[in-house]
Write a protein that binds this DNA or RNA. Structure first.
Lengths: 202, 202
DNA sequence: ACCTCACGCTACAGACCTGTCTGTTGTAAT
DNA sequence: ATTACAACAGACAGGTCTGTAGCGTGAGGT
């Protein structure tokens, strides 16, 4: 009973996962408006009815894609955070390092949150809400780090660094051919040094 | 003969301009994939045949939109540049000031070059080429300024500041609700100060 | 007075889109 | 064996998209 139940759930999950995995790859590479549900169905080898069983609409599927990207991002962040507990300066460097590496990966096509948000102007679109929440969470976590580093004006620092990260995420390999990955850390160090010198003055 | 010819050309230009103006506003506000040619035709009060007389395809119209945005941007830049000839530090501040003000404008919805480029993953899409060229030109001009300021590693500075500007352009009012307009100058000063201190060390 | 031509209007072709519906198959539980 | 259900298969509805074709009109140029 247990194994069969697991099998059932496993099958169901694997169908859902197959759809979400296929859709995620296609959405990320080509954009959501460029990919029709028929292609997702064909590529993932499922029936259309299955897609609409697990995702009420295409927008729901897009939202699920961004939500999973969001979770993956923070899972990675949390891992790095745990590895440098109590040493915020080192943690910030490590966070920027893996973000930079991610930008340098082959097939990198920009931050999915930013890209998809650019596709939907309407504020009320669920995908856009996910993206906005994601960036707010980034600012929040940068603020936590800044406070741990005892920087003056931590929120300002978080906003600034957040913008720099966004610029790097978006420009990487896409618009500026030379990836900005290696400069993220330099930039962050410059910013925090400037913040510290500000404190010395005040 | 001359006046009538001008009139003819004037009329023709006004029809073309009406199409391009209407399309530009709609494309910028909603994105190009969200706007159909029928809506552009309706809103600009022209015939569909006229649209396809002046623009071979919809992609051509999108390209024309981005090209005009590009020209407007550099026209503004050149004006500011001329107003501060021979004083690159002042010029950089002034350039960042109007860019920041542009971000803070009501109805600002991000950099059109970036937004449209995000809609088209294909490198060969004409609109994407315009966007890439636009960002390369930004880097080039920042490099010219950096050289005039006698900064060490001017190309690195240009790349860094370019990324920062991109981040600010994209994040402004869109993803980070508090506009980064007022921080652009601070960031630029921090970066150039850091570059100068680098030179002192070396 | 005639001609040219830009322009508007409308219908249409053909493709694609999302989402629904019907019916079948395989498999597990009872 | 029967019941239940997830999944597959595929047709289809109803709409939107880009781009084309046919026809009328009206204002300049000659």
């Amino acid at each position: 009973m247990k194994p069969t139940l697991n099998k059932q759930l496993g099958d169901a999950a694997s169908v859902r996962d197959r759809i979400l995995n296929t859709a995620s790859a296609l959405f990320y590479q080509e954009g959501t408006r460029a990919i029709g549900v028929d292609l997702i169905v064909e590529r993932s080898g499922v029936a259309k009815t299955s897609l609409y069983r697990y995702f009420r609409t295409k927008d729901d599927l897009i939202e699920a894609f961004l939500l999973r990207e969001d979770e993956d991002f923070w899972r990675q962040w949390d891992m790095v955070s745990a590895a440098h507990a109590g040493r915020p300066e080192r943690e910030l460097e490590a966070q920027l390092e893996w973000i930079g590496n991610r930008i340098a990966r082959v097939g990198y096509r920009g931050c999915p949150q930013i890209n998809i948000a650019a596709e939907y102007a309407n504020e009320s679109h669920p995908a856009r809400k996910v993206a906005v929440a994601h960036k707010a969470e980034l600012r929040r976590r940068l603020g936590v780090l800044a406070r741990a580093m005892d920087l003056p004006e931590p929120d300002l620092f978080a906003l600034q660094l957040g913008i720099v990260i966004d610029g790097a995420l978006m420009s990487g390999r896409a618009l500026h051919e030379e990836g900005p990955a290696q400069f993220l850390n330099t930039l962050a160090r410059t910013l925090s040094a400037a913040a510290r010198s500000l404190r010395k003055v005040s």
